[in-house]
Write a protein that binds this DNA or RNA. Structure first.
Lengths: 213, 213
DNA sequence: ATTACTAACAGGCGAGTAA
DNA sequence: TTTACTCGCCTGTTAGTAA
């Protein structure tokens, strides 16, 4: 029931969670780097444990993950989510930035990438939070990094930006870290599609909750 | 490198992702339902593979997951997230409900549980969406269900409520399904800590995006 | 009390092959 | 072509025990 996780996850990725997946034990063995025989055996065992439904024919095999199998996968998903998601809450107090962020956000070379990579075009300005430096590291280490490439203009070079998808008091946005700038480890610079300060009616010193997505 | 997942996940849950975890091979074996000897061997193997750091003394053992180990866990987390998270977007149009939801949300017997189980106290009212019935099923099947227990008063009995954590146009909230009520498969009843209709400036017929969390 | 070695055993694995 | 059975081989597991 434990060594079956890789096979079950593979089947789920192939779409067998809700629909039958048509394949052959040889192909699956090739994908999973195990023998055709092992795939055959494992699928039969897993069927015996009620993790999936299986129809074998001389033309191949057809597999659907059962409710029990879905529950098993979802359970390990939720365990992992708690591990990587549990620490992903960070509280900070609102501070006023230097206006640098606003300038960065106004540049077309970045804005296009924000839309395509983050899924939104940020409001031209950043929300700056004062946070604990260690907690900040924890939060960011646990998140998927989205890289915004730098670019050159006639007059100067703009460096890359590291972004991490987060929610700011429940509003989806991102943390933004310019790569070349020396950065204060106590500051977290946030962007969002809307003007957070007015929409959430925030003022300096207010407590903000950042949640990793 | 594959049979090690359960042990690594266990260690992560015990906090060994970023801090040393102090325990003994016997205790861990008890938790993992394997022998003390197997724990000892597996930890040594995993150290050999660079998945963790290990310090063994006659007083016990101290384990920290390495960067490689974190990456491995994170990778399976992301694979699972794609499997369960990919379908978890649902669009619907805003409709006006019957006011039943508002009544339910006002009851103290439910409200206390909302705070402790969902992490917020809902605004007294629900946002009702008209959605595709099949998509609705897909969304909810892929989400963790949070159960709000029913309760009795002198005059009547109130049934349980099934909740699913979601974001409504980016605002964190939940889908709410009363268990006893016969429910229209085309309707999705949403709750959130704020009054979504006014905060998001919504009117009937507006397109809303629901995202599973 | 610990960790971890040894040894015997159980079970997983895949090449060969039948159906 | 398929699936899946048999059968050696080898890895993983654990009881006993040393350190």
């Amino acid at each position: 029931m434990d060594a079956h996780t890789p096979v079950l996850l593979y089947l789920a990725e192939k779409g067998a969670l809700y629909r039958p997946f048509q394949s052959s034990t040889a192909k699956m063995g090739n994908d999973l780097k195990i023998s055709q025989q092992s795939v055959s055996r494992k699928l039969r065992e897993m069927e015996g444990e009620g993790l999936l439904h299986r129809t074998a024919t001389p033309q191949g095999i057809r597999v659907t993950i059962s409710e029990k199998g879905r529950q098993f996968l979802r359970h390990t998903y939720i365990r992992l989510k708690e591990v990587f998601g549990a620490r992903l809450v960070l509280k900070g107090t609102l501070v006023t930035g230097l206006g640098e962020g606003r300038y960065y956000m106004s540049l077309g070379g970045y804005r296009k990438q924000f839309q395509s990579k983050l899924g939104f075009t940020p409001y031209e300005g950043t929300l700056n939070l004062h946070v604990d430096a260690a907690e900040r590291t924890h939060l960011l280490q646990g998140l998927e990094m989205i890289h915004i490439d730098g670019f050159d203009t006639k007059s100067r070079t703009f460096g890359g930006i590291q972004c991490y998808p987060v929610s700011i008091n429940g509003i989806k946005g991102a943390v933004m870290i310019p790569e070349r700038t020396g950065h204060d480890a106590h500051v977290l610079e946030c962007i969002a599609p809307i003007h957070l300060r007015s929409r959430l009616r925030l003022k300096d010193g207010d407590l903000i909750t950042i949640t990793g997505d």
